[in-house]
């Protein structure tokens, strides 16, 4: 199988005065790699640099062991599925994918044959004759994926591939991506949703504000969430009474009452807390209206990671390599400093 790699060495890209990505160093090998980051983190910029649609302002970028910028012939080995639609509405699904196969260099009969096969694989076989303007969002997404796959590239770049897809389509696309990775292709998938990436791969590159925050195993992210004081928001009819009950348990670190009828807990052991809350509420006859976790999301992890950075750079949980670029150190002001009220 191919040993080729993607190597970004201190790559930066500026759009005028706006930074797209900054001092970006990363190495990616065969298999599926998730680009994970909130909106504006630089995921799409990095993918566009990889496909040669943007020129790096600084640094060196090698794709499949070659410089990608200005090397348009290399694009026969790359399949790119952009985030946004940009499809000729007057083409049928079959015509669109065949056209893209022809642009990749396939002969007419081979392009037609491959387009048919890929559309069938993507579940669009029966809709191949329909105009793209008649496709649903999920079908258009699959058509875009089909054009990326049709010429059997070594490197697949999928920018937010699950956007707009229904659960079945998500499962199909996720399976396809995993299979491609297992087949030895280099597959890069971007998303801002943790569980989407988690369903495809355990290898991730964390991006934040145009920088690589960390790269490595996704399960450490989960651990970080657990290490991070976890907030649980409970809306119920007697929050103070429930708070009194909860604060006695060792799992609860702090309790606060942001408004009437709401209770916010902090814990390091969310798995233990989630069953405990309804149990205590049931025993006390308290009616719970909702139980949510306001910070069980990627943004919280990014904030946590960026806050953990010291002057030497990013925090280094086991299994994750730090990003090469240091961020601005920020004082950590979460629950440890006791600024929040404790229930008496």
């Amino acid at each position: 199988m191919s040993d080729t790699r993607i190597v970004a060495d201190r790559v930066s890209k500026w759009y005028g005065k706006v930074v797209g990505i900054n001092d970006f160093t990363v190495s990616i090998g065969p298999g599926v790699t998730g680009l994970l980051g909130p909106n504006g983190a630089g995921k799409s910029t990095f993918i566009k640099l990889l496909v040669g649609a943007l020129r790096p302002s600084k640094g060196k970028l090698e794709v499949l062991d070659q410089q990608i910028w200005g090397n348009r012939r290399l694009l026969t080995r790359i399949g790119y599925c952009p985030e946004h639609d940009g499809i000729y509405e007057d083409l049928t699904g079959r015509e669109f994918v065949t056209f893209m196969a022809r642009l990749a260099g396939m002969s007419p009969p081979e392009a037609a044959e491959r387009a048919e096969a890929v559309l069938e694989q993507m579940g669009l076989g029966k809709a191949a004759h329909r105009l793209l303007r008649e496709y649903s969002k999920g079908m258009r997404q699959r058509a875009k994926l089909a054009q990326a796959l049709v010429h059997d590239p070594e490197l697949l770049l999928f920018d937010e591939p699950l956007t707009g897809c229904d659960p079945l389509a998500r499962a199909q696309i996720t399976q396809m991506i995993k299979t491609a990775g297992q087949a030895g292709k280099i597959v890069i998938v971007s998303s801002h949703i943790l569980h989407e990436i988690e369903s495809m791969t355990s290898e991730i590159v964390l991006l934040y504000k145009g920088q690589v925050l960390a790269e490595g195993n996704i399960y450490r992210i989960r651990d970080m969430i657990d290490e991070h004081p976890h907030q649980i928001r409970v809306e119920c009819d007697r929050p103070r009474e429930l708070g009194q009950q909860l604060v006695l348990s060792p799992e609860i670190r702090a309790v606060e009452f942001p408004d009437e009828g709401t209770l916010v807990l902090e814990t390091h052991q969310p798995d233990a807390c989630y069953p405990l809350i309804p149990k205590l509420a049931l025993a006390a006859g308290i009616k719970i209206r909702s139980l949510t976790s306001p910070d069980n999301n990627l943004q919280a992890v990014f904030e946590y990671l960026t806050q953990k950075r010291g002057p030497q750079g990013v925090a280094r949980p086991a299994g994750l390599s730090p990003g090469p670029s240091g961020g601005e150190p920020r004082a950590r002001q979460s629950a440890q400093d006791g600024t929040r009220g404790r229930a008496a």
Binding site: G105, S107, E110, A117, H151, A171, I173, Q175, A180
Partner: peptide, 21 residues
């Protein structure tokens, strides 16, 4: 409804020269 096998079917054909574009 089952999940399809979306595995790759490798393309072994040749690509045409760039002037064909």
């Amino acid at each position: 409804m089952g999940i399809r096998d979306l595995g790759y079917k490798r393309y072994d054909g040749k690509l045409l020269p760039h002037r064909s574009r």
